[in-house]
């Protein structure tokens, strides 16, 4: 990649796709986690990646953020192949990404205000008043301007996640990734979080990737859905297409059925046999 500075980066004539994943495979040691993944997220789109627990969704996020390197294939963010960047370039790219971790991952030794101000202090030389204004703006956007002096330990789970969201958008990133933003929230917080993600994506012109297993909430807000099961994409489409899908896996997932392609039982020998009835 040609050397460019942050300030005078000429808008590269890259495609409309902010995130592009091509034939991506990833293995931890000898365990294949993701296999042959192809997906795209256009600029300004809100894309959901869904699947049951342990299907490799979080791994996919770490690959996009460059915390893991693909075993095969490419992850391209804003025209740059993430796995091939050096340390400097990767860190430069990450400044334009925000990530919301599952439980917020707020810095527990800093107040809400300092958490949101963190990146501004680390990466910019802005004067204190301007940092203050920016932080209050971001906190206002998530409705927690009044909580600026609280410590993370004093926040509820939903509030912590909103603060983390304010922190993730502090530097006005081009891409925000949400790791299970709906997990463990009560119905009200759930609705608030969903609306917030949709609204921020639209008003700030972000591209958002939501990794989740909460089908109902995400189908309400997203533009496009990818379904992952056991490391491969099994279905994709707009929310309406997904709702209407008659693929057994998607049907089971959307309607929350207990048994189906995803079995209720972990593989085991026959029940009767294990209880000793088999050899009567």
């Amino acid at each position: 990649m040609a050397k460019t500075t942050d300030a005078v980066r000429p808008h590269p004539p890259v495609s409309d796709n902010l995130v592009e994943i091509r034939d991506l495979s990833f293995a931890y040691a000898d365990r294949l986690v993701l296999q042959g993944i192809n997906m795209t997220a256009r600029r300004g789109q809100l894309v959901a990646i869904m699947g049951n627990s342990g299907c490799g969704k979080t791994t996919l996020m770490r690959l996009i953020g460059g915390q893991l390197k693909p075993t095969l294939g490419k992850v391209i963010v804003d025209g740059q192949s993430v796995g091939e960047l050096d340390f400097q370039a990767l860190y430069r790219l990450r400044r334009r990404m925000g990530m919301l971790f599952q439980f917020g991952a707020l810095f527990t030794d800093m107040s809400v205000f300092e958490n949101v101000a963190f990146q501004l202090r680390e990466h910019t030389d802005l004067p204190e008043e301007m940092i203050r204004d920016l932080v209050l703006m971001k906190l206002n956007a998530v409705g927690l301007r009044g909580a600026q002096d609280l410590m993370p330990s004093e926040l509820s789970g939903g509030m912590a996640r909103r603060v983390a969201l304010a922190r993730a958008i502090a530097l006005d990133p081009m891409l925000v990734m949400y790791d299970e933003p709906f997990a463990g929230l009560d119905p009200i917080s759930l609705g608030v979080a969903g609306d917030l993600i949709r609204r921020l994506t639209d008003t700030l012109g972000l591209t958002s990737l939501v990794v989740t297993h909460d089908v109902q909430e995400s189908l309400k807000i997203v533009d496009y859905v990818y379904f992952i099961s056991e490391g491969v994409i099994v279905a994709q489409g707009t929310p309406q297409e997904i709702r209407d899908s008659d693929l057994p896996y998607v049907h089971q997932f959307v309607h929350g059925e207990e048994d189906g392609p995803v079995p209720f039982h972990y593989p085991a020998p026959a029940y009767a046999e294990e209880l000793g009835f088999g050899h009567a």
Partner: peptide
């Protein structure tokens, strides 16, 4: 939090 730091460059 460590992961968050990395992601914040």
């Amino acid at each position: 939090q460590i992961s968050a730091l990395e992601m914040m460059a």
